[in-house]
């Protein structure tokens, strides 16, 4: 089986109002999402803000508890646990297998701890002896290309990119099976983004890292991901191998996201304007396909019937009634 299999994951947040905090509605942040990550594979989870991609990653990390669905994870060969339902007591020893790289490198490092202690903290919590910890910290610093002298410094002495390297070192400290990277470069300067992406590529090669890479646009994920999953208002719009998705998207939303990717030479081809309008409110999603109010190809069927995620060709999944008939523009 795959390293991670998410099946029909749902996370609904209650909306409460009034003095008695009665439940008056639900925000369906994640509403039936399924995907898998094979060992050594990187899956990019892409969508605009509010589409539920962060909630999905938080559910996998069990920072939030899923409303329903299964998150089957293989911590070691031959053993499968469901991260959605496992009791807290049994979860703690499993934490070490799923680690996270945070979006904001300024908030994710404890300013009161030295860098060496920050990286060693997961080791310490998991009972690694002091001498081994020291050696491992030096090894990790080298892995993320920071000088060994960083060990005795505090985070405030480092730039955003350097801090993100520290965050990556911490995430890798326990040799996790799966790394969840929550928009790891979106808070960084463009020049630094490339460096961090290169570092992640390098780590993928060297450590055969499995990664869930969460991003809000398609511009950065092309280089790091093997496959891309596009989310829209709590559901999957399209799942496909990276190259195929960029070349010929099968969902109008993917096409819109691709149109928003900055082109190296904007004058070279006729560019369609990025999609208009706002993301639908997950508390009151439109009937039918959630994307239809913004979709230039919407037909009557889209307004009433909700499309399910279907395999449109081997390895490619899309949830669009017109996936077969439309020919959508990709990028080269």
């Amino acid at each position: 089986m795959n390293l991670l299999e998410v099946a029909d994951l749902k996370k609904h947040f209650p909306i409460r109002a009034g003095l008695l905090r009665r439940e008056v509605g639900q925000v369906r942040a994640v509403d039936g999402v399924s995907f898998h990550i094979a060992a050594g594979e990187t899956l990019a989870l892409v969508g605009e803000s509010g589409c539920g991609k962060t909630t999905v990653s938080r559910c996998i990390l069990r920072a939030q508890r899923a409303t329903s669905g299964a998150i089957r994870f293989m911590p070691e060969d031959g053993r499968v646990v469901d991260l959605a339902t496992i009791p807290k007591r049994e979860l703690r020893p499993l934490r070490r297998h799923v680690q996270m790289i945070f979006q904001d490198p300024y908030a994710s490092l404890n300013p009161r701890m030295m860098v060496g202690d920050i990286i060693a903290e997961p080791l310490k919590v998991n009972g690694v002896p002091a001498a081994e910890r020291r050696a491992r910290v030096l090894e990790l610093l080298e892995l993320v290309q920071l000088p060994a002298s960083a060990r005795t410094r505090f985070p405030h002495a480092f730039s955003g990119g350097q801090r993100q390297r520290i965050g990556i070192a911490r995430a890798l400290a326990l040799n996790p099976r799966l790394v969840v990277a929550d928009e790891p470069v979106s808070a960084l300067d463009v020049s630094v983004q490339a460096q961090i992406i290169n570092l992640l590529l390098d780590l993928q090669d060297r450590l055969r890292l499995s990664m869930l890479f969460v991003a809000h646009d398609l511009s950065v994920v092309r280089h790091v991901s093997d496959r891309v999953a596009v989310m829209y208002v709590g559901r999957m719009a399209e799942v496909a191998p990276t190259d195929a998705l960029y070349r010929s998207p099968r969902h109008p939303y993917t096409e819109a996201l691709l149109a928003a990717v900055p082109a190296p030479d904007p004058g070279r081809r006729g560019r369609r304007a990025p999609v208009a309008g706002e993301v639908a409110d997950p508390a009151r999603p439109p009937p039918g396909c959630a994307f239809h109010p913004r979709c230039p190809y919407a037909v009557d069927r889209c307004r009433v019937e909700r499309p399910e995620l279907r395999e449109v060709e081997p390895g490619r999944w899309a949830s669009c009634h017109r996936a077969q008939e439309l020919s959508l523009a990709g990028v080269t």
Binding site: R92, V98, Q99, M100, D104, N110, E121, V125, N126
Partner: peptide, 26 residues
Amino acid sequence: EEDFVVAAELAGASQMRIILRHMLPS
């Protein structure tokens, strides 16, 4: 809600350790 506290939790730190080592000094 701070990321560094979440990070400690993800590392498998106990509630007590999170409070004493990560939250209290802050």
